[in-house]
Every structure is written in C-alpha cells, then in structure tokens.
Design a protein around this nucleic acid. Structure first.
Lengths: 153, 153
DNA sequence: CCTTAAAAGTCAATATATAAAATATCAATA
DNA sequence: TATTGATATTTTATATATTGACTTTTAAGG
C-alpha cells in the first residue's frame, strides 16, 4: 500500500486549502487532455476565451493579465505560441504604441467551438452529484476565498 | 477600466471550476512568497511535508508521487534541487535497487518549523470569515470534487 | 535457467511560471 | 523643449510541468 508509512499532519485550515489546490490541479489535468487534442494548453485556452468574450475579439495584454490574474511576463510567450499556430494575431495599438493588442482569429473561434461540448461534458462530470443549490453555495465560498487571498497578497 | 470590454460567457459549471482554479493559484502565490524566503518553492515544500510526515522521514519517489498526485518525472528534478540545498538526501534502496529513497535532513526539518507560523497565518487569513461549520462543509464539497475528477481522469 | 513483462526511475524536449532587468512610449511639468 | 516619472511590454535566467523514450532491476512463466 502506498500511503502506509504516511500520516498527514496538516492543520485543518491547511488541509482545506491544499484540498482546493489538488482539486484545481486535477481538474486542470482532465480538461487539458481535451485542449491538447486541439493543440492548445490550459493557459492558452484561457487566453482564447478572454479574447473571444471581448468586443471585436480583441484585448490588450494588460487587460488579459488583469482578467486572468496572471503576471504579464507570462503572456508574452503564450501569445507568441498562439500566434505561431494561427489562433491569434498580435498587433500594436496605433493610438498608444506601448500597447500590444491580441485578437482571436477565425481558426481560434472555431477551435473554441469544437472544444465546447467535450469541455462541458467534463465540467459536468466533475460536478456530478451536486444539486444546483450546492453549486451556488460552493461558488459563493470560493469567491470569498479568492477575495480573502487577494487581500492577503 | 480594465474589464469594460469583457463579458464572461462561462457556463455556470465552468465558472465554478475556473473559480476553484483561480482560488488555488492565488493561494499558491501567497504562500510561495513565504516559502521563497527559505529557498523553497511550493512543490519543494510539499515534498518536504510528505517526507516529514513519513516514518523515519523517508519515502520512496513512487510513494511521494502517489500522495501528491504528481507524475514521477517531476520529482526527479525537484529532489535533485532539494538535495543540492541539503533539504533532503537521496539513496538507493538496498532491497530493491530500482527504488530511490528520499529522506528529509535536520536542515529540512528545522526549515519546516521556521515556516510553520507564517504559513498558518496566511492559511488562516484566507479562511477569514469562515466559521468551523462552513469550513467542514467546504472541505466535504472539495473532496467530492476531487473524487469526481479523479474518476473522470 | 531464459525470456519476457512489469515496475521504478531518469533523461530529453518542449511549454509554462516567476522575478528582475531592460526597452519603449506616454504624460506631466518645470 | 528637456526631463522626470509612470506604463506596457519584452527579455533573461531559473524553476517547474508534461510527455515519451530509455535503462536498470525485479518478478513471472515456460
């Protein structure tokens, strides 16, 4: 047996938070296997989603960062790979040449559509056995967690 | 305004799960800043915790992987860096020479002790406003999520 | 024994995350 | 106008994650 010599000594708070981390990473692994079939990684997919939900399919790098809560240095490489695979284009904002604008391509949009059904299937499977009321309650608690941790950061 | 041109179109299930991912990553960022002051990364810290909770402070690479739900190739590099900084030692199991055993050092143990208080402070801050009963409820739901997603994987 | 399959771990290649520093542009103002 | 300070992004260096291939050892069958 694998865990026979192991006794968890996490404090209750830590156990809860580590549980959140594990659930998140396991979920990421599950849906990543879907994205990978379409040549997308999890963070790449998230960027595409943000652009797809933005007016004209465009957004500045800074805004993508703010929405996804990721540091900007991350996005440079991600955007370059997305552009190399024709999921987005990158262009400079003529009105402010410090700004890089990312725009989703038709290929990017259709890829998101293809992914949609399978993604929903997995999301639904992870929430199997959760009635609507419990989902609402869980979402509310997660939001409170997020608010607390952003305050702490 | 950052999000003015962005309307989230996530399905309710996806919104919930993406929320879990965000909460997890924000928490990781917060506590990582604590670990970093002691020359440890988040995954390195987790490995130390597993070893510290194992009998004789020892565990096989495979068992660490099973407990932390991470692929084995990860642990090789992490363990090497941990060994380079004297947090653990690596040795071969004489009874089965395929096996690598990881063992926490005294330095590793004292480092965990130094981290303990600050780590608890941050964990507690993230759970501010959660009475015990809500924490229990949240933990139960998170565990159900995790069970579902491991089944789906 | 000998062959083969499984198990444990490492290695290599690629993608990602992060911090720190560098670059370029903009805005304000002296 | 020249300078200063703030913004937006990229670059650089290191750590991590992930997949698949590979090596060594063990276990199982014939």
């Amino acid at each position: 047996m694998a865990t026979i010599n192991y006794r968890s000594d996490l404090s209750p708070d830590e156990k809860l938070l580590m549980g959140v981390v594990r659930a998140a990473e396991t979920f990421k692994r599950v849906v990543s296997s879907v994205f990978r079939k379409h040549q997308l990684s999890f963070p790449q997919y998230n960027i595409l989603r943000v652009l797809d939900a933005s007016t004209n399919g465009q957004s500045r790098v800074t805004d993508v960062c703010r929405i996804l809560l990721v540091p900007g240095a991350n996005v440079t490489g991600l955007a370059k790979r997305l552009e190399k695979n024709d999921f987005i284009i990158r262009k400079s904002d003529p009105s402010d040449e410090r700004v890089t604008i990312l725009e989703i391509t038709p290929k990017g949009k259709t890829t998101l559509k293809h992914i949609e059904k399978e993604r929903d299937y997995h999301a639904h499977a992870m929430l199997e056995g959760f009635p609507e009321e419990e989902k609402r309650d869980l979402l509310e608690k997660i939001r409170r967690l997020l608010k607390n941790s952003r305050k702490a950061a």
